[in-house]
Design a protein around this nucleic acid. Structure first.
Length: 490
RNA sequence: GCCCCCAUCGUCUAGGGGACCAGGACGUGGGCCUUUCAAGCCCAAGACCGGAGUUCGAAUCUCCGUGGGGGCACCA
């Protein structure tokens, strides 16, 4: 291709379902490459398969990409000089190009129906060339008379086709391996192979960065391009993403059973609903099949836009590793300001029926910031602050270390101590409770754990002194009192 | 079955003939800190798929195996 022309790349999903991390990562690499080299990113929706079309999924796709921070310069929603960017609106273009290939003898009309194709499939590796030698005039007549037909590519029968992939060097395919594949379907729509090549050419795409699943048909694509006499884009095929165990392709089909546990999903919108931050997802995805060096692993989208290089893409398959996503997510949360965390957490609290006071929430954030992974996690850390009644079963108060009576005494003493406080601040609470533990001859933990249970209903909670302060004198007293009654009445 | 791609710790990776008894990160185990749980810090275990070749020298280059993956539609 012409190396002087500005870089133009495209992400070309088909609207058949939700955006998952495989597609998102392809989109990301395209986007980053465009940014790093001041090129243009194009979004093109490839919806030529009417059977698999899923209503609204293009809209969802766009929403998910935008949420991740991936933008484009041309696309169905923003337009551009090569409009339209919805492939099904370009079928006239595809048709005329297919016919052009017929005209110059690189393709031919085929009148075989599905029944015949089915019957030869067992005997032949691919299409048997039944309509290959029908003379042009006869074929033309049958087409104009309205006979159902497809247009097939006239694949070379001998020799080899060699295509250059940026990260895999030469890929050579024996031409006899190629059948006369369909370019244009009887339903009036083009097949991917034709449509994508025509659109890429017309849209002046310079680099095709796409998934590994296209590698096996790259010879077809090169042959189509060469048949037209066009120059090829630079090809760059990404590796596949495999299941967490490293075995088997990560797929949408069994995503529910294998890649997805309670907290993780391969779908971007699920991750979003779970409370992951887009930057964490970006950082995680970027490193599945790409690296800068052996030093830096923390990247913001803005960083990646500066340093991304196609040459550093790794051709070998990468297994999805959700624990690393959690790591990046946790790390990202800790880097956010308290205000940002509060804002991110709020929708999840609301979803569970909690409408927190803004200032109170802000004061709680420091207590949970390095305890949560996803924003949704905040709900279980904070809900006891906002619910009127908490549930405790008395049996939880006793364990191998302390009996009912001991716990009761602790709570009574704590109650007294707290009642005598001048001000209900965590510093003074801490001072008094520490000295109470000392006078009672208890370890701080022994003293605090029953209190924790009494006021939160949980064995684990945010740091207790701060928790008590924020919970407030009244609530603390009533909850401790309630726990005391509970213990007395066993 | 045929074709194509890939191969370094469990996982993501650095490395690209001597700098490597192979470096980093996640995870795992242990320790420190500590009011629970985290976070943080420290330590540890843990890999060049096998075999030939090329070379003074191979994780690195070549070939052959093996393993894994992807594709062989009027799907994308």
């Amino acid at each position: 291709m012409n190396t002087n022309s500005p870089i133009r790349v495209r992400f070309a999903p088909s609207p058949t379902g939700h955006l998952h991390i495989g597609g998102a990562r392809t989109a990301l690499y395209n986007y980053l490459f465009a940014k790093a080299y001041s090129g243009s990113m194009i979004l093109r929706v490839e919806d030529t398969d009417r059977n698999r079309y899923v209503e609204d999924s293009a809209k969802q796709l766009i929403k998910d990409l935008k949420w991740l921070g991936i933008n484009w310069d041309e696309g169905p929603d923003v337009g551009g000089i090569f409009s339209p960017y919805i492939q099904s609106e370009r079928t006239k273009l595809h048709r005329s190009h297919a016919e052009q290939l017929v005209k110059i003898g690189k393709a031919y009309y085929c009148f075989c129906d599905k029944v015949r194709l089915q019957s030869i499939r067992s005997k032949h590796k691919g299409y048997d060339g039944h309509c290959r030698e029908i003379d042009a005039d006869t074929a033309m007549e049958r087409v104009t008379s309205g006979e159902k037909h497809t247009i097939r590519f006239r694949s070379p029968k001998q020799g080899t086709t060699t295509v250059d992939d940026l990260i895999r060097k030469n890929i050579t395919v024996k031409n006899k391996q190629l059948e006369d594949f369909v370019l244009f379907k009887a339903d009036g729509f083009p097949v991917y192979h034709l449509a994508a090549m025509v659109d890429d050419h017309l849209m002046e795409i310079t680099h095709v960065i796409r998934g590994d699943e296209w590698l096996s048909s790259i010879a077809k694509h090169a042959l189509i391009i060469r048949a037209f006499g066009w120059s090829e884009p630079i090809w760059c095929h990404l590796s596949v993403l495999t299941q967490p165990g490293g075995k088997g392709k990560m797929s949408k089909r069994d995503a529910k059973t294998k890649e997805q546990d309670d907290n993780h999903s391969i779908f971007i919108h699920d991750l979003r609903n779970k409370g992951y931050h887009p930057e964490a997802i970006i950082n995680w995805m970027a490193l599945m099949g790409w690296s800068l060096d052996d030093k830096q692993e923390d990247f913001k989208l803005a960083d990646l836009e500066k340093v991304f290089k196609l040459e550093r893409i790794n051709p070998s398959p990468a297994a999805v590793n959700f624990s690393k996503l959690d790591y990046f997510q946790g790390k990202h949360v800790r880097q956010m300001s308290d205000r940002e965390v509060a804002a991110s957490v709020q929708p999840f609290l609301r979803k569970s029926g909690i409408v927190p006071d803004k200032e109170m929430l802000l004061s709680l954030v420091p207590l949970i910031k390095n305890r949560i992974v996803t924003f949704e996690d905040s709900v279980e850390w904070l809900s006891f602050f906002f619910t009127k009644e908490i549930m405790i079963s008395p049996s939880e108060f006793t364990n191998k270390k302390s009996t009912q009576e001991e716990t009761l005494v602790i709570l009574q003493n704590v109650k007294l101590t707290l009642e005598q406080l001048q001000e209900f601040k965590h510093e003074s609470i801490e001072t008094e409770l520490r000295s109470l533990a000392e006078t009672m001859g208890l370890k701080l933990g022994q003293l605090l754990n029953p209190v924790r249970l009494a006021i939160s209903g949980q064995k684990v909670s945010p740091p207790l002194f701060e928790t008590l302060e924020i919970l407030g004198e009244n609530l603390v007293h009533s909850r401790i009192e309630k726990a005391i009654k509970l213990l007395e009445n066993i």
